[in-house]
Design a binder for these strands. Structure first.
Lengths: 228, 228
DNA sequence: ACAAAAGTGTTGAACGTACACCCATGC
DNA sequence: GCATGGGTGTACGTTCAACACTTTTGT
């Protein structure tokens, strides 16, 4: 039963997938196999099915096109310029995802689809308005990382404080003082010191820490607000 | 030419319009004339036309249904639960608007449509998932007002510091210290002292100030960041 | 003259910022 | 033994939070 008679736009979801590898913030792109923009790199995404909600659609497309699932995924913004798709009116609800690169290493292209990680300062021309979407996602990440503890989503379960600091420095595009950074984060009370240290490094091995979500919720309920 | 063959959802825009009147944060609602939810209060909104972009659609619906135009309008979030409309799959891109209540006083119902302002602590049952949308908008306003100078959109062009403080107190649901509040805001350097004072008040009249956008942009470019 | 809100400074505590050296490890 | 990054404390300046009384105006 169709009860609302109007011409309808198509609705898609697109995902900006961020990963981090010690020195770079990276994004996962796929090379389009079909027109429009055949052969051009683009964000993973696709049409929303009628029976699924938007976040489900984003998670499904991510899984189908890149094999990623179960990661941090949050709605970013909805893009709907009438001419953003040359063939038809398409509105896209963009999401961004944060994943740990070690869990999804630079994958060999499958038969079906070409997938690759690109450093943020080396992005090829993108299809549609995906450059605008990517830019919006980068700004959101930069803004949000200072007041929500989402940076940990980009790191392995256990990480060093230096890795964490590098992540902040790269995303915020700024330098941070080592002593002040450590003092501040440890004082927050939700970084759990493990009794493990780095292996396979050519210098003194650093202690590994873990983000303790339960403790974070506790301090948050006591009025603590994550900041910087 | 339809090139993407998929069943399509309908796409609407809905607007959460906030106003402020000395003692209350208010929202503009309209009473639905048609099914579904006939007679129930709802956010102003309607279908996106194929040739307009999303923000244009929101501005147009706002104008058509409430007579408001030219105000602050920003995308909020996109809601797409498959069952959010009982009759069909409808995805809605929600916007929120901030207006000065004096420019749009509590309007008499027109023949066509019943429109009314409701205080945030006295909201009737709403159609669809509009309660969720409203709640999301309130959280966004509460969050954003502390790091962007958007509170001024809710006040007249010239306002007293006490009015500004009340606005913050009500939106943040907290008490603020008068001396500290004034000192902090004046120190920001973009509140312009006019040489006018309140009229028609039964006590000492307060000085009127104005938000100077140009000066705000200047201090911002010098590295200043609005906060609290 | 009284009611109502406007306007105004100081102090102590907490926090942020700047800064440099020794230590542990692998090669 | 040397190169590499790991780990640590202090002092100063800035900002925040708490706090109460006098002034102006209208009725």
């Amino acid at each position: 039963m169709v009860t609302y008679e109007h011409p309808r736009p198509a609705v898609t979801v697109d995902c900006v997938v961020f990963g981090f590898d010690e020195n770079d913030l990276k994004v996962l792109l796929i090379q389009r196999k079909y027109e429009p923009f055949r052969g051009v790199w683009a964000l993973p995404g696709g049409f929303v099915h009628l029976e699924e909600n938007l976040e489900q659609a984003a998670a499904r497309e991510l899984w189908e096109e890149t094999g990623i699932k179960g990661c941090f995924l949050e709605q970013l913004y909805t893009f709907g310029r009438p001419d953003r798709d040359p063939r038809d009116r398409v509105i896209t609800v963009a999401y961004y995802a944060l994943i740990n690169l070690n869990d999804y290493p630079v994958q060999a292209d499958s038969d079906a689809i070409r997938v690759a990680w690109f450093a943020m300062d080396d992005i090829p021309k993108l299809a549609f308005d995906h450059e605008e979407i990517l830019k919006t996602a980068q700004q959101r990440l930069k803004g949000k990382i200072t007041y929500q503890p989402i940076g940990f989503e980009l790191l392995p379960d256990k990480f060093t404080l230096t890795q964490l600091q590098r992540l902040y420095e790269i995303i915020l595009a700024t330098g941070l003082d080592k002593r002040n950074f450590r003092r501040k984060l440890l004082a927050m009370g939700f970084l759990e010191e493990t009794n493990e240290i780095q292996t396979d490094v050519a210098h003194r091995a650093a202690r590994l820490y873990r983000f303790n979500k339960v403790r974070y919720e506790q301090v948050r309920q006591n009025g603590f607000n994550f900041e910087l």
